[in-house]
Design a protein around this nucleic acid. Structure first.
Lengths: 193, 193, 193, 193
DNA sequence: TATGAATGAGGGTTCATTCAT
DNA sequence: CATGAATGAACCCTCATTCAT
């Protein structure tokens, strides 16, 4: 009814869809509900998005791109690898806390490979970012020798676990500071007196 | 009209359901499909399980109980905290790899709080197990001082992330050894030669 | 499990079924529920009754026969037609109040002609009983001239309406005395000074 | 994919539903059957009615409102209470004969209180209409003294019984004239010559 | 562009009835 | 006689998607 620019409508739909998807999960979120909450007709949805999956994927992609962008941005002028780890972790954790919906990314509701390539690509790039940091740390003599690839994977996975715990048990949320500390120093006591 | 013992049928259903749920996710897994794959009629399913949710929850609970049992068992005669960490991690990671379906546990499908109490309870108990290990390590002077609770949370979350990566990007799987190493030693170089 | 005589079991089933049918209606009453409440296996039900319909019909018939018997009994030595009307009405109304389940008789849940012949037969016989009373009253000069058949029908229908109101709106229940009075005297004022 | 106006479709569904419900009863009437007979898809039914119950209730309400309206209309300019009784009875009986489906109103299907409030309200209002008539008759000295409320109840119940007999045994139908006569004059002979 | 009525496959679930034990 | 696991058709309802307007 309201005359809106196409772009505006599309953005509006995406915003609403994020909310609806994160509230009900992919399967239970209905196009009808998204349409209604967007103030757009059902048919209207299909003007902007090929189908439900397309809408969902577009959504996820935009969020993932956003986080990737943010990460790169923040890391840009961090020289110290230890601090970079710190920054990386807190950026991710805070982003996750702010956009709980991201959990959806991981949701395993639909059969395999549902926008999975996109997600893989995202995680891969984040992993390689982390690898760079670690490698640099080792090169600079700040970090001990270790399997760079494996370590990067592990750290990325901590973040992934964090996202999950937002949903499953909020009391499991941990602080970015403690996380950095553990990742950097480990549990074992440093016997340097 | 095959006559099978009730127990046999129930077990058969649970096995098949695990497969179907993990293949399609909760929402997309249909009772029809489970029935067919079980070689049991649709109505037959409802003899053993009140409804779909009941079937799902029973499933998850058995797996969770199993892992909890296994963990406790393995940890029983481990004296060294560092080794305990090691054992804990490899037990979980290997279990997850063997029972990829466990991912379901984490799925954020259907509205909130869907068997979530059960899951919370499980994670809480695992967390407290981990806390005990860390506390013991500190008391013995093997681990450095740290926020026990936070550290436990983080370690548990690494495991959680691992489970997820099984689905999302198998190349992100990491080795239990490297994981223990990172958790124990941290990234920073030990400056005691 | 318990060894019971067949007759005893059959009676037990009928009693329970009456309760269950009247609580849930024919369609919603399940054989399973009747079996459970009877303490008899599902299969057991089918030993005594061909099927659900058979069970229902047997039930209704027994109640109807019971009421018919009771009516005849009570009327046997009533000489005065006016008193007979009185007796007839209060017998029916009280029976209905005591056995609310009778409503089922009228329940129109299933397609036409579901034990309808039996019901017709019952009402026909009650009607002819009433006709006899009225005819006798006219013959004796106590009742005024009227269409006997029509009047009988109407009176029977008052009873039928009463049964219904038990379910639909209990506040519509009326007293047998007032009913007899209306039927006998009518609304118009008697201008015999 | 026939495009019909919403109102047209809704009306069409209601008409068909009335037929189907009255033919099979609420429980046995299936949405599929109603859809098919309406020339509308199953899903289409749910555009206009929230669910089966809603469809049923809407149906009943419209009929009840219709009859209530008709009654009031007809009674409006009837001055003589005796004639009013006459009118009231024949209006109801004729309406019932024309719309046999009204029986549904009374059906005791599904658990208690299923649109029962609506029905109660209807009957209550009809009852109070009848009470007014009777009271007026007494005041005018045309009717004898009697318990107004009870009498009204009884008369309403005659009508109710009539509706039922349409289904159970059509030969029990009686004429409005005879009914009015009985209600007005009673069975007893008037002893004023 | 935009609408929303219409579709229809498919979902979870129930239940009368059968039959091997 | 008695049991109750098993069957499968049928029920109500949802929802992504289409298309005449």
């Amino acid at each position: 009814m309201n005359k809106r620019s196409g772009i505006e409508s599309k953005k509006r739909i995406l915003d609403v869809a994020m909310r609806v998807f994160s509230e009900h999960g992919y399967e239970k979120a209905s196009m009808r509900a998204i349409a209604k909450a967007s103030g757009i007709s059902i048919g209207g949805l299909y003007i902007y998005f090929k189908n439900k999956e397309d809408l969902y994927l577009t959504l996820i992609k935009s969020r993932l791109d956003d986080l990737a962008e943010k990460t790169k941005e923040t890391l840009k002028d961090t020289k110290d690898p230890a601090e970079a780890i710190n920054t990386f972790i807190s950026t991710h954790l805070n982003y996750a806390k702010r956009h709980k919906e991201l959990i959806l990314i991981q949701g395993r509701e639909h059969g395999f490979a549902f926008g999975i390539d996109m997600k893989k690509k995202f995680f891969k790039s984040q992993r390689s970012l982390m690898e760079d940091i670690i490698r640099k740390g080792i090169r600079m003599g700040i970090f001990g020798k270790c399997n760079v690839k494996e370590s990067a994977k592990i750290i990325i996975n901590v973040m992934r676990g964090f996202v999950l715990s937002i949903v499953v048990e909020s009391e499991a949320l941990f602080s970015p500071e403690e996380c950095s500390k553990l990742i950097l120093h480990g549990l074992l006591r440093r016997n340097n007196r």
